[in-house]
């Protein structure tokens, strides 16, 4: 079996705790991730992403492949950053995979992040294996993006399970009003 080569991967890590930041940074490096850019809160992250769009040569990265961000930060938290990534016109990549790190794992908080278009959630406390699992899931099982009047983000239905219940999805690929964009 071949091994992943993360050498060309560009990751943006947004974390205000110095300790956790260096922990994740080192873990990613040890897993072989080539480029990890670190910032301390959502405001800096937005600034960084704008620069990726405007002056990629200067900061040395054309595209961020994955964002890993803490949720609770000051002054701009992870949710505000996620909202900006998914919805703002200045966002360089509204589809970038976004992993939220959080110790808030109550269902309503998870739901809130999901509705905002989070790709995955990494619960604290975490292990290296947890980080590795998230990486593999993002690479191997990408989800289509869904855009409706109320929602923009990765498909909230992850699994192609058989529904025991009635499938409440009214639209399919062939329905009127459905547009499929491939790239």
């Amino acid at each position: 079996m071949a091994d992943y080569d993360f050498d060309r991967l560009n990751v943006l890590l947004v974390e205000d705790s110095h300790f956790i930041r260096s922990l994740i940074l080192n873990s990613l490096k040890l897993l072989g991730v080539g480029n990890v850019f670190t910032v301390e809160h959502g405001g800096e992250a937005i600034h960084f992403m704008k620069r990726v769009k405007e002056e990629p040569m200067k900061i040395g990265v054309q595209q961020i492949d994955l964002v890993i961000s803490n949720w609770d930060m000051h002054p701009v938290d992870g949710m505000m950053f996620l909202r900006w990534i998914r919805r703002h016109k200045d966002s360089p990549d509204r589809f970038v995979p976004f992993v939220m790190i959080t110790s808030y794992t109550e269902p309503h908080r998870v739901m809130e992040a999901r509705e905002m278009g989070v790709t995955d959630i990494l619960a604290k406390p975490f292990t290296i294996s947890n980080i590795a699992e998230k990486l593999v899931a993002i690479i191997e099982r990408p989800r289509q993006f869904v855009h409706t009047a109320e929602f923009f983000g990765p498909d909230r239905r992850r699994r192609k399970t058989e529904f025991r219940d009635v499938d409440r999805r009214v639209l399919n690929d062939k329905s009127e009003g459905v547009e499929i964009i491939r790239g």
């Binding site: 079996m1 992943y4 991967l9 492949d65 191997e140 990408p142 639209l171 009003g177 499929i180 790239g183």
Partner: peptide, 23 residues
């Protein structure tokens, strides 16, 4: 009413290269 965006898996191309099967 709804747009589905389905992209080629660029991330896999980048990290698993042309390796077939499980990585």
């Amino acid at each position: 009413i709804v747009r589905f965006y389905r992209f080629q898996n660029r991330l896999r191309d980048k990290t698993a290269g042309l390796a077939p099967g499980n990585v």
